[in-house]
């Protein structure tokens, strides 16, 4: 069974076809990379899958539900979580509260009980607090729990964004350039973290990344996008030697 299946996904901005009938399969427990030159449409794919843009055509299947055109909060309810290329944390909330917002869907509790400060609401509050601390602990950043998100070091912010996504108990995680701006040591840590997400959290991960060594090292399947079209798709070693991919990255200079 596939965790996520994209069929014929298309998005146009005016005359520009940003994503052109993309087909992509993310198997259960799989790690799929999405690469391509700048402006190839990778982040647009993420925005389409997470519901931020309505697609012009195509379907996005998650467990037999077609999520194409659904608003983001409904997509999230089907177990899809994501991070952003330019980290989008809730800057003036603490790291802990960022993660608690991530747990918004799973913690329940009615509005009325919330404003009347009922026991149910307070218990839930305590429980989500503990759960959020646990997630921070698992990611290894629990000592930053009470710091404001905007004041955290860059690498921690990246991890916090992942922690926040995890708190929503997703089955599919979309990571948009998680290694961007990281030093080699942080990248190595991130690689470990991604492996743990696959093994311990049983997630299926779709990953956009520019760091080729990172992508080639961990992905099982790689899709290469250029001008919105898939120009290659396959295991890392095949992609590495694909002439179309080399041309897309290096341009005509190769010939």
């Amino acid at each position: 069974m596939n965790a996520l299946e994209i069929r014929g996904l298309t998005k146009r901005f005016g005359g520009l076809v940003a994503v052109d009938s993309l087909d992509l399969v993310l198997p259960e427990g799989g790690l799929v990379g999405l690469i391509g030159p700048n402006g190839a449409g990778k982040t647009t794919v993420f925005n389409l899958v997470s519901g931020l843009y309505p697609p012009d055509a195509g379907s996005i299947l998650v467990r037999d539900h077609d999520l194409a055109g659904h608003p983001p909060h409904e997509v999230a309810r089907h177990g899809i979580a994501r991070t952003f290329q330019n980290i989008r944390l809730f800057g003036s909330l603490t790291a802990l509260d960022n993660v608690r917002v991530g747990a918004h869907m799973v913690c329940g509790g009615s509005y009325l009980s919330a404003i009347l400060g009922g026991r149910q609401s307070r218990d839930l509050d305590r429980r989500t607090r503990e759960q959020a601390m646990q997630v921070l602990h698992d990611i290894g950043i629990e000592r930053y729990a009470n710091e404001l998100a905007s004041s955290l070091p860059y690498g921690v912010q990246r991890k916090l964004e992942i922690a926040r996504a995890l708190a929503s108990s997703p089955s599919v995680l979309l990571l948009d350039e998680p290694a961007c701006g990281m030093n080699p040591q942080e990248t190595a840590e991130l690689r470990d973290l991604v492996s743990r997400l696959l093994q311990e959290w049983k997630l299926s991960i779709l990953l956009i990344e520019h760091d080729m060594r990172f992508v080639m090292g961990i992905c099982q399947t790689i899709y290469v996008l250029d001008y919105g079209k898939t120009i290659a798709c396959g295991p890392p070693e095949a992609i590495r030697n694909d002439p179309a991919v080399i041309e897309a990255y290096l341009g005509d200079a190769v010939h």
């Binding site: 997470s50 519901g51 931020l52 608003p71 983001p72 909060h73 997509v75 999230a76 309810r77 979580a81 994501r82 952003f84 989008r88 944390l89 809730f90 800057g91 003036s92 909330l93 509260d97 608690r100 917002v101 991530g102 747990a103 918004h104 869907m105 913690c107 509790g109 509005y111 009980s113 919330a114 404003i115 009347l116 400060g117 609401s121 307070r122 839930l124 509050d125 989500t128 926040r164 996504a165 929503s168």
Partner: peptide, 30 residues
Amino acid sequence: IARNLARSRHGRALLAIREDETAASVLGVN
């Protein structure tokens, strides 16, 4: 009431909306 709201998930959802609507929405906040 305001204080209770702030301490609940609904209140935190509002804070998240204040900080970044897009990020809040992909976390399942309507």
